[in-house]
Simulated assay, not measured.
Amino acid sequence: MHVLNAVSSTILFCLLSVSITNITMAQTLSPIRVSDDGDHFVLAETQQRFRVWGVNYDHNGSGELIDEYWIERWDEVVEDFAEIKSLGANCVRIHLQVGKFLDAADKVNQSAVDQLKKLLKLAEHQGLYLDITGLACYHKVNVPEWYDRLDEQDRWQTQAFFWRSIAKVCRDSPAVFCYDLMNEPIFPAEKQVVDSSDRDWLTGELGGKFFVQRLTLDLNGRTRQEIAKAWVNQMVDAIREHDDQHLVTVGVIPWVFAFGGGKPLFYSPEVSERLDFASVHFYPQKDKVDEAITALKAYDIGKPLIVEEMFPLKCSAAELADFIDRSAKFTDGWISFYWGETSEQLKQKSDATIAHAITAAWLEKFQAMSEQVPVLPSR
């Protein structure tokens, strides 16, 4: 960009600084739908095939979730979305916390709702679709005591109210790719009742965050399939009260991969009927890409399939790229991570660690691969 003089530079700066909410722009994003044969995603307006190539924007470099800073530091979100777009991504997975969106079991936090509306406009402006993952309880400090005290029935009703409220806000935005009902829901073991004195719905703490959440504390004679089906139906019913268009999924831990066998639960015939596509989280292990591909195929159930989380956490960047290439024949999207810092920023940090170096190298690889996504093999 060429700046002729200081005056024009100042004018340009002012124009670029105008709040996105005050700009009237034509919405150029086409809604995403499942193809008529149920096999893949298409742009609704043209029926052109669509592949997801995105990032999880689950927290920033300080570990804060988006709804913990997006009001006071909105400019950071705007900057990060621009950086995500420059990586070649077309989708951003965001994670919304119950405690930030609900003031009570039947009352929304209006400030959070208003900010979500701004985020939708920002996504539309940047040409980025949103994978909206809800019901997060990652930071315990943000989980209300009243929410933890609810029994299963009331907790599910509150969760349905959350989704009803989100869908009401998002229903008309073409930037919404999907609603992910919950990140990695789990169940107690067979015949297990979680200690009533503990009543902790959360488990699997990782780096100060709880990414895993129980749907029930007691199977109470029910199968996991029965519970999962009832819960999915209740959440989808709540969404469909306001939004009958946008896609719905559940991001799951691929237990088939984790334990070397078994069958999918949420993507079993008994449970998956109301889910529009399959979403699984894969971190291939070193020298075990073959096993990861085999496990991923278990989730190829005749619906579009997305690897909703991936990162060279347990393998090299080259092995992860190989996993992507080899899964392209039966997979419709891949979502990695972006934590608010570019590759250059990570490499220039004075306290840079090996983790920073790995992340920087992967971001460069991710950006380079973005040019290949449209020409990856068809299913």
Rank of each mutant, 00 (worst) to 15 (best):
P144E: 09
V169M: 09
N183Y: 00
L202N: 12
A136Q: 06
L181M: 06
V212D: 03
M182T: 04
K140I: 08
L150N: 04
D114K: 13
E152Y: 05
G134A: 14
V169A: 10
S173D: 04
V176Q: 02
N109T: 02
S197I: 11
I166H: 06
D106E: 09
K140P: 05
V143G: 00
H139M: 02
Y138H: 15
L128T: 09
C178W: 03
E145A: 10
M182V: 07
K168E: 09
Y179K: 03
Q115D: 15
D131A: 13
Q115H: 14
G134C: 15
L102T: 14
A105Q: 12
A175H: 04
V212L: 06
Y129V: 14
F161E: 07
Q126K: 09
Y179W: 03
L202P: 06
R164T: 07
P188V: 01
D103H: 06
W156D: 12
V194R: 08
R214N: 06
I186S: 12
L130A: 00
W156S: 10
Q159E: 13
V108H: 00
L116N: 01
A136T: 08
I186G: 10
R149S: 15
E145V: 08
L181A: 06
L181N: 04
Y138V: 14
W156H: 13
D114I: 11
P144K: 05
C137Y: 01
K140S: 08
D148N: 07
L135K: 02
S196G: 04
E205V: 13
S111C: 10
V194L: 11
E205C: 14
Y138D: 15
H139Q: 06
D154C: 04
F187V: 00
V212H: 03
G204K: 12
V176L: 03
L202W: 04
P174A: 01
P174E: 00
E145M: 05
L120S: 05
K121I: 15
L181G: 06
L135D: 01
M182H: 03
P188T: 01
